[in-house]
Amino acid sequence: MSSKVNIKDIIYGHLATMSKVDGGWSWYDFLTFCFVPVAFSTASIIMGFSLNKDVSSLLVNFGAIFTALLLSVLVLVYDQESKLDERYQRDAELKRPIDEFYSAKKKLLDELYYNISFSILSSLALIATCFAFSMADSFVEPKASSLSLPIILSKLVFTPIAVFVTVNLLLTIVMIVKRLHSLLRPK
């Protein structure tokens, strides 16, 4: 795969943020960000839910809007990191006390970078899933049986993937908002 589209570093970086403050692996984070979306996806299959054009359109709009918003938040994170580094260097040059929370803030900004980048990729995956659903849905004939390949793909492939990505994206966005709140709130 071309290094220009290789996203494994972003995915690994995002997974690495699922850790405790002391650096150990957090099973609660893993359960929250993996098991909960899988549970919703499984429930969508059991309940027979299937994407339709309206829901697919809504998810595409959701993904597109959040991609744009998250790109602007990524710029904010970069700006905050630059300001933090400048303040650290200025304090070091002037022999002033260094912010005792510098390393914690720096780590939080790095994790935010990976979380936001992962959310942008998730939004793009959601849009691609809805596009694939629309392509498969265009092959469904009006009087097709419930066992036609496009309907099976919709119910057993595209719908669970869309549900998984949507739930995971929502949880990740909540995590990003919480981290931004912690970082930017007035003290």
Rank of each mutant, 00 (worst) to 15 (best):
Y102L: 05
L153N: 02
S119E: 01
L58Q: 03
F49P: 00
M175T: 06
Y114Q: 04
L180Q: 05
E111I: 11
S57V: 12
P186C: 11
C34M: 06
L15K: 08
V21T: 13
K83M: 06
S2R: 13
F66C: 04
A125P: 05
A136L: 07
I46D: 02
K8Y: 10
L69P: 01
E86F: 14
L51K: 03
Y113W: 09
K178G: 05
S26I: 09
L184G: 15
V167A: 02
V77W: 00
L51S: 02
D29R: 12
D91N: 12
K20N: 14
Y102E: 03
A125E: 03
W25D: 01
L74N: 04
F139A: 02
H14L: 00
I116N: 02
S122L: 07
I11E: 00
V140C: 05
M175L: 05
A64W: 05
H14G: 01
R185P: 13
K8C: 05
F133S: 04
A39P: 07
T166K: 01
P186A: 15
L69Y: 11
K83F: 11
A68M: 09
V73I: 10
S56C: 11
C130N: 01
I11T: 09
L94R: 09
A132I: 10
P160H: 12
K106W: 06
L71S: 15
L71M: 10
F164Y: 07
I65E: 14
D99L: 13
S3T: 11
I10V: 15
A43K: 10
N61M: 13
S145L: 10
S41E: 01
F139W: 10
L121V: 03
F131H: 10
I10C: 09
K187W: 11
F139G: 02
Y12C: 03
A104Y: 11
S72F: 11
Y12P: 03
K4T: 12
K187P: 13
V5P: 08
G63H: 09
P186Y: 11
L70E: 02
S2G: 06
I10Y: 10
Y113E: 03
